[in-house]
């Protein structure tokens, strides 16, 4: 039976952590551990989830877990996976939870190496679009126009500087499974976690995780923002499987961007012209995605 919000298992492996109220990242860790079960081995680099999960003298995780150096999530993951393979264990998923900074900036070479080694690992990037643990600094995954403590007037580079496209980076390694997901679409997310656990080889998940503290939104807006970012077309739900791209959700008409931007303090000084420019970039991204989708289904070998 495939997993959904109706069949989410009861056993709980992430309780009593010290994350802020309404944290999207901790919701993802909780769901992933529920789906993969208590034999999971977890690797967490420096970042929010290691700060809130490993609380001396006890830890909030009910599974085996280790803090890795900031830049070495992928390396530690493939090391653990190699031991699991050498001992002949078949029911031990090895999963890493890294933030967007630890994935897109600091740990990118390590991720690339881990994907290249083809061990059976699950790499999960929970993307809250800045370095939240150290005080909301701009990262390589911060979108245009966002206020952080290192871009107090809003991140507005003169050149076109998009968020790093981690799905394409992962897919370019030719791995069996890569996907994007959002906390707003729980069934889609749970299905993708389950799939990633069954794939033989490395898999990569890029998950949208709102951060009420860093984004200046209400603590109860996490799931609603996760929905509206997909409906406005800013975060496409994608799946890269067997060298073929699937777009899981294709809205006929995108919801207006204001709906998503309004509740967030980090977008407070964005102007109407800039919103129109963001819409144009979004439409261009979707044209490219659809072209990739068609191209990969016509000729999977060169997708």
């Amino acid at each position: 039976m495939s997993i959904s919000i109706k069949t989410l298992p009861n056993p709980e492996h992430f309780v009593g952590h010290k994350a802020c109220g309404g944290c999207g990242g901790s919701l993802i860790v909780r769901w992933v551990l529920k789906v993969l079960g208590e034999k999971t081995h977890v690797v967490i680099p420096a970042g929010c989830m290691s700060a809130v999960g490993f609380i001396y003298p006890q830890m909030a995780l009910g599974v085996n877990a280790i803090i890795s150096p900031f830049a070495a999530t992928g390396a530690v993951l493939s090391g653990i996976a190699a031991v699991v393979r050498a001992k002949g264990l078949t029911d031990v998923p090895v999963v890493g939870f890294a933030g967007d900074g630890a994935t897109a900036d600091i740990g990118l070479q390590s991720l690339s190496g881990a994907l290249d080694r083809r061990e059976k690992i699950i790499y999960i990037c929970y993307d809250n679009e800045a370095y939240m643990n150290t005080g909301i600094q701009k990262s390589g995954a911060t979108p245009w126009g966002v206020r952080t403590t290192t871009s107090p007037r809003g991140f507005r580079p003169e050149l076109d500087a998009p968020k790093k496209d981690l799905l394409r980076i992962a897919a370019a390694h030719g791995i069996p499974y890569a996907a994007t997901a959002s906390v707003g679409y729980a069934n889609d997310l749970l299905k993708k976690i389950e799939k990633a656990g069954q794939v033989d080889g490395p898999s990569f998940l890029h998950i949208f995780a709102p951060c009420p503290t860093g984004w200046g939104c209400e603590a109860d807006a996490t799931v609603q923002l996760g929905k509206s970012v997909v409906d406005t077309g800013l975060w496409p739900l994608l799946e890269w499987e067997s060298r073929q791209l699937t777009i899981n959700r294709q809205p006929k008409k995108f919801a207006p961007l204001e709906e998503y931007l309004a509740g967030q303090g980090r977008y407070r000084n964005i102007t109407e012209d800039e919103i129109a420019a963001l819409e144009a970039v979004r439409d261009r991204n979707w044209r490219e995605l659809r072209a990739w989708n068609i191209h990969s289904s016509v000729n999977p070998d060169f997708g």
Partner: peptide
């Protein structure tokens, strides 16, 4: 005398979060 590893088996935590809300 401070422990080098978690103080007891998993499933227990040293502090509650009830003062946060």
């Amino acid at each position: 005398d401070w422990p080098l590893t978690p103080q007891c088996e998993s499933g227990y935590l040293a502090t509650s979060n009830s003062g946060w809300r």
